[in-house]
Design a protein around this nucleic acid. Structure first.
Length: 357
DNA sequence: ATCTGTGTTGAC
DNA sequence: TCAACACAGATG
């Protein structure tokens, strides 16, 4: 999925030192005999080597914009870094075009809070909201591709048109059901952003009947009004992958200075058979509804003790909106426990969702 | 012949 | 992470 947009040619992990040094580096095709030499194809800077006064460099002009680099021909390149690797976003005639391309990539790669060249800090218009949804409904590779081909704005506009024609006011049908055949606007409306994940502790799945929400995430994503609401708490609705809605009481416990999900949580633990070390993840729709979602997955890595997962056949996992989704091979004629049955159903539903996107 | 964007490095 | 720089390869 992603990754096709990163520098492919750098995947040669073992560079042969011999072949590298085999290339004669100094081309030196310029005209060194002249006191005045024009260098490069783009920035024509006169170099007076005699006086040394002008001593102007042949250096390309650096950009005032983040993620923008000069090209020898006077054009501008845009790039962003991810995972120690440069992702090239294309070349542009105007410096600010390149800067805008960087901004778009930054929003897609780093989220709402990304540092950008132009995007304002606050004042989120509905247009921005649609654009965010558009961004999140496409993979990073797709967005990069649009930027490199200079088709991003066209695609966004097209998407907006679809959204207005058949997206507005449409009720979401069969929640959690088969999503095959979603229109572009539906995909946007259903796009969701990952908020955070937590590996549940023994006490989160124990007798305390509560889940501690790490403070940083709680305050960022589930802000409570100060005063009465924080102690009394509020009710939050989360939809799971099957479309079932879970309602939890969410409040702040002064005694432990913790944000917690209380009433309703133990039922979730029981139904999903959550074990310590399993991961619960929270998402939120990027559409106007701002619907919250909850998902879970078995403990990552290591030998897990979950017999359900262990007994299931090879499981493929795919990443959807930052959520790990399991996919089960359909060929399975064996008897299964009730628990397995339920788990498989769960997976099949997830598989459908995945197939739809 | 021209231009893109990769290889590479060093500063932050 | 980031941009500066050089230039190998891609492109037309």
């Amino acid at each position: 999925m992603d990754g096709s947009c990163i520098d492919e040619s750098s995947t040669t992990d073992s560079i042969s030192p011999t072949s590298v040094s085999a290339f004669p580096p100094p081309t030196a095709s310029k005209s060194p005999e002249s006191p005045l030499c024009r260098v490069g194809s783009g920035t024509s800077v006169i170099l007076d080597s005699e006086s040394g006064v002008e001593a102007e460099s042949r250096k390309l002009p650096s950009s005032k914009y983040k993620g923008v680099v000069p090209q020898p021909n006077g054009r501008w390149g845009a790039q962003i870094y991810e995972k120690h690797q440069r992702v090239w976003l294309g070349t542009f005639n105007e410096e600010d075009e390149a800067a805008k391309a960087y901004d778009i990539a930054a929003q897609r790669f780093r989220g709402r809070d990304a540092i950008t060249n132009f995007k304002p800090t606050a004042a989120e218009t509905e247009e921005d909201e649609i654009e965010t949804a558009f961004l999140n409904s496409h993979s990073k590779a797709e967005i990069v591709d649009m930027l490199r081909k200079h088709t991003y704005n066209d695609e966004l506009d097209q998407s907006k048109r679809n959204y207005r024609i058949d997206g507005q006011g449409k009720q979401n049908r069969n929640p959690g059901g088969n999503n095959v055949g979603l229109s572009a606007s539906d995909r946007i409306l259903k796009a969701r952003e990952q908020l955070f994940e937590k590996s549940v502790t023994p006490s989160d799945v124990g007798k305390l009947n509560r889940l501690v929400i790490p403070k940083q995430h709680a305050e960022k994503h589930f802000p409570l009004q100060s005063g009465s609401t924080s102690t009394k708490g509020i009710l939050l609705n989360f939809e799971d992958i099957t479309g079932k809605v879970w309602r939890f009481r969410y409040s702040y416990w002064n005694s432990s200075q913790s944000y917690v999900l209380t009433k309703g949580w133990s039922r979730f633990v029981k139904e999903k058979n959550l074990k310590a070390g399993d991961i619960v993840s929270f998402q939120r729709s990027t559409g106007a509804d701002k619907q919250l979602y909850i998902d879970w997955k078995a403990r990552t890595g290591s030998n897990n003790n979950n017999p359900v997962v262990c007994s299931v056949q090879p499981v493929n996992m795919v990443r959807l909106f930052g959520v790990n989704i399991f996919e089960i091979p359909t060929t399975n004629g064996n008897k299964r426990t009730r628990e397995m049955e339920m788990f498989s159903l769960e997976c099949i539903k997830k598989q459908r969702v995945f197939g739809a996107l």
